[in-house]
Simulated assay, not measured.
Amino acid sequence: MNRLGFFATISMVALALMSSMLFVVDQRQFGVLYALGQIKEVITEPGLNFKLPPPFQNVSYIDKRLLTLDSSDTEPMLTAEKQRVVIDWYVRWRISEPTEYIRNVGLDESAGALQLNRVVRNAFQGEINKRTVNELLSAKREALMADVKREVLEAVRGAKPWGVDVVDVRVTRVDYVESITESVYRRMEAERKRVANELRSTGAAEGEKIRADADRQREITIANAYRDAQKVKGQGDAEAARIYAEAFGRDPQFAQFYRSLEAYKATFNKKGDFMVLDSSSSEFFKTFRGAMPGPGPVVAGSRK
């Protein structure tokens, strides 16, 4: 039993020793092998590798993928015309030489991102100081990004190379500081309100003009219609008078009789009207006297 425990202990120690001597490098990483604190080897190919057990040799890993650094500083920068603007940018970069990177920058990606952020911001500040706001918003932005990338590459490839490669530098937003932005928005709002009020006034004036023209056209149309109606009516009355005159001219007695009937009709047009006349002296009932038996008072009234 003691022999079995001894062999089990030996096996566990051997397994622990073997596990400390084996390590795997992923395809997304660099494997950096240290020997007593010094870099002995950088493994760039993925796979299973061997090393001495700690503390003789140790291994650390650095990301070899393309990394993105986004701007985190909101401090404004001054343009050529002394306008304060805030820009958002990002940088695509990668670690290309792990040995130089560890010696001159740091042991992990965060150290490189911190120093790269400072270099990129300084490069942007220097280039924005040379340009106006219109140039930052126009096609000249490409030249700005190219100049910043060139300056950053010069910094990381200087006397002490960082072992990094800057692939791209991009500006995502250029804006005024908040106080200026609010002022610009207020001016824009006031301008839009002024234009809106001007359009409303113009529309109201045009509406009044259209209504006045419509009223004028209406009055003209009514006047013309009334004129034409009166003209037609006059022509009708003239024609009727001509026909009456022609008809009455053929029989004067009938004409007199017809006019008398019209006069009677117009006189006794209300219920309860009475007239007391002397038929012998009144010309009004001259038409009736030929049909009446003799003279005497005549009482006339209307009945309905």
Score class of each variant (00 low, 15 high):
8 A>H: 07
9 T>R: 09
10 I>F: 09
11 S>P: 02
14 A>C: 13
14 A>M: 14
17 L>M: 08
18 M>R: 04
20 S>T: 14
21 M>V: 04
25 V>Y: 06
29 Q>L: 11
32 V>C: 10
33 L>Q: 05
35 A>W: 01
36 L>N: 15
37 G>R: 07
40 K>I: 01
41 E>A: 11
41 E>N: 15
44 T>Q: 14
47 G>A: 05
58 N>F: 05
62 I>R: 15
66 L>Y: 11
67 L>M: 15
68 T>M: 15
69 L>M: 14
74 T>L: 14
79 T>E: 02
80 A>P: 01
80 A>V: 12
80 A>G: 03
81 E>F: 04
81 E>I: 09
82 K>D: 15
82 K>S: 13
87 I>N: 00
87 I>Y: 00
88 D>E: 15
89 W>Q: 04
90 Y>S: 13
95 I>D: 00
96 S>E: 13
97 E>G: 06
97 E>Q: 06
101 Y>G: 04
102 I>K: 07
102 I>N: 03
108 D>K: 08
110 S>Q: 14
117 N>V: 02
118 R>S: 14
118 R>T: 15
123 A>S: 13
124 F>V: 07
124 F>C: 08
128 I>W: 00
129 N>T: 06
129 N>V: 05
130 K>T: 10
130 K>G: 03
130 K>M: 08
132 T>G: 08
134 N>C: 00
136 L>N: 03
139 A>R: 05
139 A>T: 07
140 K>S: 11
140 K>M: 03
142 E>S: 06
148 V>R: 04
149 K>I: 04
149 K>L: 13
150 R>A: 05
159 A>S: 03
161 P>I: 03
163 G>C: 01
164 V>C: 02
168 D>T: 01
170 R>M: 02
170 R>S: 04
172 T>F: 00
176 Y>K: 02
178 E>W: 01
178 E>R: 05
179 S>Y: 00
182 E>K: 06
183 S>I: 06
186 R>C: 01
188 M>N: 09
190 A>D: 06
190 A>C: 01
191 E>L: 05
195 V>D: 10
196 A>V: 08
196 A>E: 13
197 N>W: 07
201 S>T: 11
201 S>K: 08
202 T>Q: 12
202 T>N: 08
204 A>Y: 07
205 A>I: 14
206 E>W: 10
207 G>Y: 07
208 E>Q: 11
215 D>E: 12
215 D>W: 06
215 D>F: 05
216 R>K: 11
219 E>V: 13
219 E>I: 13
220 I>M: 13
221 T>F: 04
222 I>W: 06
227 R>P: 02
232 V>R: 15
232 V>F: 08
233 K>F: 08
233 K>S: 13
235 Q>M: 11
235 Q>G: 04
239 E>C: 07
239 E>P: 00
242 R>N: 09
244 Y>M: 10
245 A>C: 04
247 A>D: 09
247 A>T: 14
248 F>K: 12
252 P>G: 04
256 Q>A: 14
259 R>S: 06
260 S>T: 07
260 S>Y: 05
263 A>V: 08
268 F>R: 05
268 F>D: 03
269 N>H: 03
276 V>R: 07
279 S>R: 06
283 E>L: 04
284 F>P: 01
290 G>E: 10
290 G>S: 12
292 M>H: 03
294 G>A: 13
301 G>V: 03
302 S>L: 02
304 K>H: 11
304 K>T: 14
